[in-house]
């Protein structure tokens, strides 16, 4: 009887170990997959980032993949927010929009990359960005907002 109990216990332990292993594998697979957004008639995939380049420079990155050729594809604005080392809150310090920048969009394209360098960052200050992706075709247009998490300028 004891032997039978031991066997059942061993079997249960093996099953438990296998189940936890399978769980961790599926968790890894889910982590690999990019974040899922709501479905869109205009956008297929979005990439965005704000990265320190050193010497007070920040790399602003926004790339959009559209569902097909768009008459206009890119960003309508990218706002950079700054918090200086002694400050308590963030405030917008620069905006890329149609008044300040001439290469926000591509025309008649399926993908577009907007990647300027912001050169007036203060080393030690913190920054994040808000990106408004924009796509337009003969059926209409759509804007999706994305936020790059806080980074520290170097």
């Amino acid at each position: 009887m004891k032997a039978m109990c031991r066997r059942i216990l061993s079997l249960l332990m093996i099953v438990a170990i296998l189940a936890s292993f399978a769980g961790s594998v599926s968790a890894m697979e889910v982590e690999e997959f990019p974040q899922q957004g709501r479905s869109s008639a205009y956008f297929s995939l979005l990439n965005w980032d704000l990265a320190p380049l050193g010497n007070g420079k920040l790399y602003v990155y926004a790339k959009a993949w559209a569902t097909g050729y768009m008459t206009k594809l890119g960003v309508s604005s990218v706002v950079i927010y700054e918090k200086l080392p002694n400050a308590t809150s963030y405030s917008p310090v620069y905006t890329y929009n149609s008044y300040t920048c001439s290469f926000l969009y591509g025309t008649n394209v399926t993908t577009y990359t907007f990647n300027p360098t912001y050169t007036k960052a203060v080393p030690g200050a913190q920054y994040y960005s808000s990106t408004a992706f924009y796509a337009e075709n003969s059926s209409g247009h759509e804007t999706i907002y994305k936020y790059a998490p806080v980074i520290t300028a170097t």
């Binding site: 297929s44 979005l46 980032d49 990265a51």
Partner: peptide, 15 residues
């Protein structure tokens, strides 16, 4: 890698 987001119909992702 930069941040990425795919536009997906709810519940229609398969491995």
């Amino acid at each position: 890698m930069p941040r990425a987001e795919c536009q997906v119909n709810e519940g229609e992702l398969q491995l």
